[in-house]
């Protein structure tokens, strides 16, 4: 869809959905621009920041769908326990994810209610982390990533996050 080769909405027969035929493709073009980085684009600090925030938000919101349809992620869903996970860039944006058995969703609540936290040192490290270019254990030991609380939640959510790239390559 982001390549613009397919029309995501069946427009034939609809006459009052101008947004779908005009603005929507522009939105997808813009999303494609920010979600398909090149090495050159990532050298621009502003682009890097927007790409990182978009990727973090997209990945977090993809979790329920991936858990539902990917067989491995679906199994992980059976093992999830009740908790609230904060994935956050220090001094930057973050997402709060609620988990329970066979349940995962992004929520808009007070971040201080998180029972488990993963804090990422800065935007460049977050970008590498979200694009699978970070040795996670190494990053934890070096302080680039910081985890605390019910870290078994992170083990499970991490398994589901790991499945996302399979569907966007």
């Amino acid at each position: 869809m982001f390549d613009g080769k397919a029309n995501p909405i069946p427009l034939k027969g609809f006459t009052k959905l101008g947004f779908m035929s005009k603005e929507f493709p522009k939105v997808t073009d813009k999303l494609e621009y920010y979600l398909k980085p090149t090495d050159d684009l990532l050298k621009d600090d502003k682009y890097l920041e927007i790409n990182t925030i978009f990727t973090l938000t997209t990945a977090a919101n993809a979790l329920p769908t991936v858990m539902e349809f990917d067989p491995k992620a679906n199994l992980t869903g059976h093992h999830l326990t009740k908790g609230r996970l904060l994935l956050k860039i220090k001094n930057g944006p973050g997402v709060l994810i609620d988990t329970d058995v066979n349940h995962i969703e992004v929520v808009d609540e007070d971040p201080s209610t998180a029972t488990c936290e993963m804090l990422i040192k800065d935007i460049p490290i977050a970008n590498k982390f979200l694009n699978g270019q970070v040795d996670i254990y190494g990053a934890l030991a070096k302080g680039d990533l910081e985890i605390k609380g019910q870290t078994w939640l992170l083990d499970s959510v991490g398994l589901i996050l790991d499945r996302i790239p399979i569907y966007i390559q």
Binding site: D135, I136, Y137, G138, A141, K148
Partner: peptide, 27 residues
Amino acid sequence: RELFERAVEVIPNGIYVHYSPAPLIPI
């Protein structure tokens, strides 16, 4: 820390699984 910086270059995870520093919190 200095040893670990070298280790992550040549060993997956630097130190793996049950000796990994990852579950040692705060690290």
